[in-house]
Design a protein around this nucleic acid. Structure first.
Lengths: 234, 234
DNA sequence: GCAAAAGTTTGATCCAGATCAAAGAATCAA
DNA sequence: TTGATTCTTTGATCTGGATCAAACTTTTGC
C-alpha cells in the first residue's frame, strides 16, 4: 500500500492534522480499498467495525423502510469521513454511487489512534458538527419546502459541492457540473418521486434557468433566478 | 452560583467526564442562567459566543424561511448540550419551550477548557455523533413517512425521551406523559400543519390507541399498535 | 366570574405532488 | 446493428394533506 504522502485528499481529510511521524503510524493501520459503483460498504444495523476516509468517488448514506421507501440522509465526497466510531452498530447504509477509493481503518484501531492523538479527534469533532448543521438544514428542506424550492436548493448545493472537489485553489461554485447520480437518487435526496423531479427539471430548463445537455449534466444559466427559487433561509 | 456537586444533571451531562478538581475550574467559567418559556437563547445567524448545558426544561432548535415556515430540527432536554463551538456563527435558533435553567459558558472559555481536557471533548464528540444519527433518522420521517406514521413515530419517540428525563434508574419508556408543547409545535417537528396533527391525534384516540386526557397529555393505551403504525425502520 | 385571547378541533374544499400508464432516449450486450 | 434493458420524460388521473373557515375549549387577566 502506498504512503499517505501521495494521498490526494491528505490535506483536506482528518489526517491533515497529523505530522509525518503520526501519519506513518496511521498508514500502518489503514488499507486502501476499492468499491464498485453500486457496492454497499456497510448496512444499517450492522456491527460497527470499520471507518474510512473517502479518497475518490461519491457515496450515499441512506435510511429506508421495509416497504422500500428510501431517504438519502447524506453524501460523502473525497476527504469525507464515513463509518461510526464509538457506537456498536451503524445507523445507516453506506453505498458507493460511483467507483470509489477509500482508506479504511478498523474501528478499534482508529479509536485507539484517535485516543492518543487529540488533534485527530478534534478534527473528527469539527467535521461531525459541520455535518450535523448540514443535516439540520436539510430537515427544513424536507419538512417545509415545495418541490420547486427543493430542486433549486439541491442544484445550488450541488454546484457548491462540485466546486470543492474539483480545484483546491478555486472555491468558486461551478455553474457547470455533472451529478454522480440519476433522477431516482435526486428524488431520494429531496423526498420526492422521480416523476416530480423530472418535471421540475424540465420546468427549470423551459424557463432557461438551467440547461440539461446530458442526462446527468447541469448547466446553471441564471444563478440569481435559481437562488431566488431556492428560497434559502436568511 | 452553586457548585456542580449539587447539579442534578452532573452525571449525565458532558461534565460527567470530569473529576472534582476539573469541575471546580469549569465551575469558575460557567454561569447558571434562567430562560422564560418562549425566550430565545440564540438566533440563527448570530455570532457564536456562548454554549451551555441544559439543567432543567426543554428547548427547541429551529430553522425557518423568511415567509414564516418553520421546522424544528432538534429538541434539547436536561443534560443536553446547546450552542455551536468551533464555528463563528450558529446555524439555528434555540428557544426555551418551558421555563428553563441552563449552565452557560463563553464559547472561548469552553473551547480553551475542552482543549485542555480531552475527556470532555470526547464526550462532546460522542454526543454530537448521537445527535447526527438522530437527525438523519428524522430525515427519513420528514422525507418519506405519511402523516399517520409521523404521529405514531413521534409519540413513541417522546415516550422514550420522557423515560430518560424522569427517573434515572428506570429506563422503561413511559406510557403516560405530558408534552412540553402544543399542536403547532408538533406540526413543526413533523413537517405537517396543525390541522393534520389534530386530526391524526383524534383518529388515534378514536381507535383507542391513545387517550388524550388533557391538551398536552398523552396516554399510550396500545403500544404495539402504535409501534406498528409508526413503521419504524428494521 | 366574565370577557378576551390563545389554542384546538372539525368541516368543506382545493391543489401539489403522488400514482398509474405509456412512450421516448440512452446504454449495453452480442 | 439490433434488440433488450434501463432510465427518463410526458400525460392523465387521483388523493393525502394543505388551505380556508368557523365553532369550540382552555387559559388569562381583571
Amino acid at each position: 500500500m502506498s504512503v499517505c504522502e501521495d494521498c490526494v485528499v491528505r490535506n483536506k481529510a482528518i489526517c491533515g492534522s497529523l505530522d509525518d511521524g503520526e501519519l506513518q503510524i496511521m498508514n500502518r493501520i489503514g488499507h486502501k480499498q476499492v468499491l464498485k459503483a453500486g457496492q454497499t460498504f456497510m448496512w444499517e444495523g450492522d456491527e460497527s467495525t470499520v471507518v474510512a476516509n473517502v479518497i475518490d468517488g461519491v457515496l450515499k448514506l441512506t435510511n429506508s423502510l421495509d416497504d422500500g421507501r428510501e431517504q438519502i440522509v447524506g453524501l460523502a465526497f473525497p476527504a469525507d469521513f464515513i463509518g461510526r466510531p464509538y457506537q456498536d452498530n451503524v445507523k445507516h447504509t453506506v453505498t458507493a454511487l460511483t467507483d470509489t477509493q477509500i482508506c479504511s481503518f478498523s474501528r478499534n484501531g482508529f479509536e485507539q489512534f484517535a485516543h492518543d492523538h487529540p488533534n485527530l479527534e478534534h478534527k473528527v469533532l469539527e467535521r461531525t458538527l459541520d455535518e450535523l448543521d448540514q443535516a439540520r438544514d436539510w430537515m427544513l428542506l424536507l419538512g417545509r419546502k415545495t418541490a420547486a424550492e427543493k430542486l433549486a436548493t439541491f442544484l445550488i448545493n450541488m454546484s457548491e459541492r462540485s466546486a470543492d472537489s474539483s480545484c483546491a485553489t478555486n472555491f468558486m461554485p461551478q455553474n457547470q457540473f455533472s451529478l454522480p447520480f440519476g433522477r431516482q437518487q435526486i428524488a431520494d435526496i429531496l423526498g420526492l418521486t422521480i416523476e416530480t423531479v423530472s418535471r421540475q427539471l424540465t420546468d427549470l430548463s423551459k424557463k432557461s434557468v438551467v440547461d440539461l445537455p446530458g442526462k446527468r449534466d447541469i448547466v446553471i444559466r441564471d444563478r440569481d433566478a435559481l437562488v431566488a427559487l431556492a428560497n434559502l433561509q436568511p
